[in-house]
Simulated assay, not measured.
Amino acid sequence: MESFIILIKLLCAHLCSDFILQTNEINNGKRKSGSKGLLFQFIHSITHAGIAYLFVADWCCWLIPSVIFISHFIIDVIKCKCYKDSLSTFLADQFLHIAIIAILWFSLYGDEIKLSYFESFCSVKVWLTIMAYLLMLRPSSIFLNLFLNKWTPTSPNTQSLPNAGQWIGYIERILILTFVLVNSFEGVGFLLAAKSVFRFGELSKAKEIRTTEYVLIGTFASFTIAILTGIAITRLF
């Protein structure tokens, strides 16, 4: 079980580095041509390596930060140079990074897996919960943006606050995940009802039904991600 904690720590490090610590400046800078783009790629990859090394805390094992740095640098360079932003590119990119993390973990710690479940029960649960909350932030937001891209209205509402929708999504998914983890599904229903009340005035004035449908799809997709993640975490224990 101790080795399983290391895998969860590596995944948490990936989520922190790829979605929390990667600012818009770094994300846009990686796509620049020449040495500037490579510099941003280097900064981003070295951040991944450093956070993984810090989270795992196996100070004598330099193979972990080395492999993560090299693999992340190569994958991101290829992605930024050869592919455009899309849902398939995003999923393929994340799959490759996570696959390399899993292979690296198994090659180093796979033979140390222990059968004792209760030794590290609390620690594993804590790290899985942290990973679930991290998923509710930018990973889910990016996935939803790509998923809803083909339905996005051509004339956005200029009266809305900057990034307000993104932060509303963050907060609602965190609340839903919390409700599910504490087995309080009535809270999910209350949140959905409250959001419907606040949205009613806006949707009733919509000139086209597509606006209402777009909001409903985004809301239900966001709720589904949070609920399924919460159920998955609770079922593991």
Rank of each mutant, 00 (worst) to 15 (best):
K36S: 11
M131H: 03
I233S: 03
L87F: 07
T152P: 00
F223E: 04
I43R: 00
W105I: 07
N27T: 14
T23Y: 09
L11I: 12
C12V: 11
E172K: 08
I98D: 03
I233C: 06
A52I: 01
W167N: 14
T47D: 08
L39I: 11
W151C: 01
A99V: 05
F200H: 06
N28M: 12
V188W: 05
I174A: 12
L96E: 06
R199S: 06
N27W: 15
I142C: 00
A57N: 15
T89E: 15
A221P: 03
L236N: 07
I233Q: 04
I20W: 10
S71K: 03
V180C: 13
N28H: 13
V180H: 10
S140Y: 01
P156I: 03
K84A: 09
F190H: 11
G34L: 03
I26Q: 01
G230H: 06
L191A: 12
T89M: 14
H48G: 04
N157R: 08
T47M: 14
R31G: 01
I130T: 07
N157S: 08
H72F: 01
V188Y: 02
N163V: 07
A52S: 05
E2S: 13
R199N: 05
I75T: 10
I103R: 02
C82Q: 09
T47A: 12
F220M: 12
Q166H: 11
L216E: 00
T154E: 15
A194D: 11
L115G: 15
V77I: 15
F4R: 10
Y133S: 02
T152S: 10
T129A: 08
G37A: 07
S160W: 11
A232K: 11
W151F: 14
G218C: 05
M136N: 03
I174C: 13
T47I: 15
A52P: 02
S17Q: 01
T152H: 08
R210E: 14
I70G: 06
D93V: 05
V197N: 03
A194G: 15
F55R: 01
L115N: 15
I70M: 08
G50Q: 01
I43G: 00
T178M: 10
W167P: 07
F237P: 09
I100R: 04
R138Y: 08
V180D: 09
L216Y: 09
V126S: 08
F90W: 12
T152V: 09
S3I: 05
S141A: 14
I98V: 15
F200V: 03
Y214W: 09
L128R: 09
C122R: 13
T89Y: 10
C122T: 12
V67Y: 04
I142H: 05
S123A: 00
W167Q: 13
Q166S: 10
F147K: 14
W105K: 02
S107A: 11
D18Q: 00
E119T: 12
L161F: 14
L134M: 02
S160A: 15
P65N: 01
G187E: 13
S141R: 00
L91V: 12
I6M: 11
L177V: 01
N24L: 12
F40P: 11
G34I: 00
F40W: 13
V126A: 11
H14N: 04
K81M: 06
L135D: 00
K9V: 08
C122M: 12
V124M: 14
G110V: 11
C80W: 04
D58M: 12
S196V: 09
A206C: 05
